[in-house]
Simulated assay, not measured.
Amino acid sequence: MTLPAPLAEIVDDFSALADPDKVTLLLEFSSELPDIPASMQTEAMEPVPECQSPIFLSVDATDSSSVKLYFSAPPEAPTTRGFASILHQGLDGASAQEITDVPSDFFHDLGLASVISPLRLRGMAGMLARIKRQVAEQTGA
Score class of each variant (00 low, 15 high):
D12F: 15
G123E: 02
L128S: 02
L110H: 04
T2E: 15
R133W: 12
S104L: 12
A18S: 15
Q89A: 03
P54M: 11
F56C: 04
R133S: 15
D60I: 01
D105T: 11
M124W: 06
S31N: 13
Y70T: 09
S114F: 06
A5E: 13
R120C: 03
H108M: 14
S85M: 00
I55G: 02
T80G: 07
A129C: 13
P37Y: 09
P20E: 15
A16N: 11
S31C: 10
G82I: 08
D109G: 05
F83K: 03
M127I: 10
S30M: 07
Q41C: 15
A44T: 12
G126M: 03
V115E: 14
G123V: 05
K22L: 06
G123H: 02
Q89S: 06
A18K: 15
L3S: 03
D21V: 08
Q52P: 01
A129H: 13
A5F: 10
L112W: 09
I10R: 10
I36T: 11
K68I: 05
V59A: 01
M1G: 12
A94R: 00
L112K: 04
P47W: 09
R133H: 14
S65I: 00
R122L: 12
D19H: 10
G90V: 02
K132S: 04
R130C: 02
G93E: 02
R81G: 05
R122I: 08
S114H: 13
A61M: 01
M124L: 13
D35W: 01
A8W: 04
L87F: 01
G111S: 05
L119I: 14
E28S: 14
S114K: 15
H108N: 12
T24D: 14
G111W: 04
A8S: 11
Q89G: 10
I116V: 15
F83A: 04
A73W: 07
S39G: 14
